[in-house]
Design a protein around this nucleic acid. Structure first.
Lengths: 218, 218
DNA sequence: TTTGTAAGCTTACGACGTAAGCAAGGATGC
DNA sequence: GCATCCTTGCTTACGTCGTAAGCTTACAAA
């Protein structure tokens, strides 16, 4: 008679799955491993989740739910920038999540809430429905794309120069002259390597503002 | 004595793998299936590729190599826009590719050539090294993010209104008022749904141009 | 002829997701 | 108090995967 354990539930299964993914990535998230973590056989999990895909969908929505929706600031651009930065922070805290988030159609409640909030902010700032829709799609394409690229190229900004130096030989053949020179610039410390996500966010937000103004003027 | 077949080679293995992925997605790309396609046992493939990851890296670079580099136009913005559109077209022709492309560190020759070309265009347009680096990173984050989102939400523009109508019930609860209204707008035909990739490309390119001008003026 | 080497084959192992059915225990109806 | 059922978790098993280890065959060089 082992120590009695709390009974399983969908919620407990998903939370354990999230913890497992956080500690070892998607590879370590197997039904058997997840069962072991909960002190249970793998097949028992199927009483509480339909299949592994349901587990993946579930933990992705748990992550999305972690994204704080900023309060409604007076300035919509500030709100939107914070929203993008918050998403980036949360997604990089769970590096296994973005590939899942983007390669499956996700309509979990947290995601819907997130989108609804965004539409509200843009409408409040005077965007037409059409432009608001374009706007959040453009923002999110960038945020997710940026996050994924950052994760797939996991060089901390501080190490960038060093890594660049290491890869110099790849570029030495003269086949990629511009990359070679760019790498040299980074190595010399003339510029810091990858842009912060704020760079792109501001670029897009400024552009959207101009489009909104043109729309209102026209 | 079966019909003699051409001998295996890394190239032939990768081409067969590409064809297999194109016809049935990543799921159907298994070593055994790939061997069968080539009239060979699975283990024979390991004479020509290190392991399955090498196959995946290889076919991703084959896809990247399909992206036409536009000729150097007089207008850098036109060139850059075409570049983004070409990438989008190629990647949607191989819908299994973007998730792979973005979730593994890729430095295949086709990718390096693609980046080098882009840097050259931007430098030719008067961008500093730093701004050119930021610029292509921002562009590509958007292009890949947009492409992935588009693939994960595979509603052809023409079907959008219909799909929206189908999902109306999800929104009827009043929990997501802005989404509900947006959906209604789409259903009424007031706007066409998802933006074309050109919308975001132009937005970003205009913003980059302004930054370059400011840089040159400063 | 001998010998070396490369290409492909055979067998096998330890994962994986999950279908099918069983066992035990608590709740419910009489 | 007893019989019933339903819930929860367990056991066993199947087909699939990537790939390690070693074998066979055939041709080229000596």
């Amino acid at each position: 008679m082992p120590t009695s354990r709390p009974p399983l539930s969908t919620r407990r299964v998903l939370q354990a799955a999230l913890a497992l993914a956080d500690s070892g990535g998607t590879d370590s998230l197997t039904m058997r491993h997840l069962g072991r973590e909960l002190g249970v056989e793998a097949m028992s999990l199927y009483r509480h989740v339909a299949n592994k895909d349901a587990v993946l969908d579930g933990i992705v929505d748990l992550v999305v739910a972690e994204i704080d929706l900023p309060g409604a600031e007076e300035d919509w651009k500030v709100t939107m920038r914070r929203r993008g930065e918050a998403a980036y922070r949360v997604l990089t805290r769970h590096p296994w999540a973005p590939p899942l988030l983007m390669s499956r159609t996700n309509t979990g409640p947290a995601m819907l809430r997130y989108i609804d909030f965004t539409l509200g902010v843009l409408r409040g700032a005077g965007f037409s429905w059409k432009l608001a829709d374009y706007a959040w799609n453009t923002m999110d394409s960038f945020v997710y794309g940026y996050t994924l690229r950052r994760l797939a190229f996991p060089v901390a900004p501080a190490d960038y120069a060093e890594t660049a130096a290491t890869h110099q030989h790849l570029l030495a053949g003269g086949e990629y002259p511009h990359m070679a020179e760019l790498t040299r610039q980074v190595t010399l410390g003339h510029h810091p390597g990858d842009p912060d996500i704020t760079f792109g966010l501001n670029l897009i937000l400024d552009g959207l503002e101009r489009l909104r103004d043109a729309e209102q003027a026209g």
